[in-house]
């Protein structure tokens, strides 16, 4: 009796494993979502003027893709201008933008609002309107301000090249088991040194069905790194060095001109 029970249990277990394998099989046949970024370290050298960044990977055949490169949300203090005395444009005070990324670059295979439901866009923070719903903007007294200031913030960041949404720009190569995708982008030199999050979302039926993520780092190297470290760690010495070199350069040129242009 005992043995019969064991046999039945074993048979059930075998069935369960087989069923699980069968369910998993189609997904395995269609390549799972992957994502790599190249290079993973972007060095800031003396002649740095941004970089070429390639984000590539595999995705399932019928999924749409959304790529997001961002930093974790932080608070940003911004000065705002308004009219003083009804005539002059002046900085009137400070606004606090609570929970905004420093960099926010999104690209996709199609229009975000056509492939994703509002709720999903909200959850994964895809699109400016989704970000706007999550961000709080307050004046210096902690009172919420009009929505137009968030739009102005987006304009400011877009002008700085660190915010951008490019819909329909991801292209794919079709393969037997899925698609290879590749995005080649001009990484803006305006983006500060730091670690950046790269997320790729596979979208189907208005929902995010898969997600892959990686990171890359933009870091100062060599002379750039040494000088920016010195400016903070040995600030007094840095200041004296800056003044001494400037004075020497000034006097040296003065002397050269004296020799070269004695007729003056």
């Amino acid at each position: 009796m005992k043995r019969t029970v064991m046999t039945v249990l074993k048979q059930w277990a075998a069935v369960a494993v087989a069923a699980a394998a069968m369910i998993a099989l189609p997904a395995a046949a269609q390549a799972a979502l992957t994502c790599q970024v190249n290079p993973t370290k972007v060095p800031i050298t003396l002649s740095y003027h941004g970089a070429k960044l390639t984000i590539s990977g595999q995705s399932a055949l019928n999924d749409e893709l959304v790529l997001k490169i961002s930093t974790p949300p932080k608070d940003a203090a911004m000065k705002y201008k308004g009219k003083a005395a009804g005539l002059f444009w002046m900085k009137k005070g400070t606004m606090e933008f609570k929970g905004v990324p420093q960099v926010y670059l999104v690209s996709s295979t199609a229009k975000l609002n056509l492939i994703l439901s509002d709720a999903e866009r909200q959850q994964y923070q895809l699109g400016y309107d989704a970000m706007g719903n999550a961000v709080k903007v307050e004046d210096s007294k902690g009172q919420p301000v009009e929505r137009k200031w968030f739009d102005e913030f987006i304009r400011f960041k877009e002008k700085e090249m660190v915010y951008n949404i490019q819909e329909g720009t991801i292209t794919r190569k079709h393969g037997e088991n899925g698609n290879a995708f590749e995005v080649v982008m001009d990484w803006p030199y305006q983006a500060a040194p730091g670690v950046y999050n790269v997320e790729v979302f596979a979208v189907n039926g208005g929902k995010v069905v898969d997600k892959a993520a990686t990171t890359f780092e933009v870091e100062r190297t060599g002379l750039i790194a040494a000088l920016s470290k010195m400016a903070v760690d040995q600030a007094a010495l840095y200041g004296i060095m800056a003044v001494a070199i400037a004075m020497m350069a000034g006097f040296a040129v003065g002397v050269i001109f004296k020799k070269g242009g004695g007729s003056h």
Binding site: M78, K79, Y80, L87, M90, T94, F156
Partner: peptide, 14 residues
Amino acid sequence: LELVLEPSILLSYA
């Protein structure tokens, strides 16, 4: 002129 004309961007870093 800067004072009288509307600036193109109304925000700047604090």
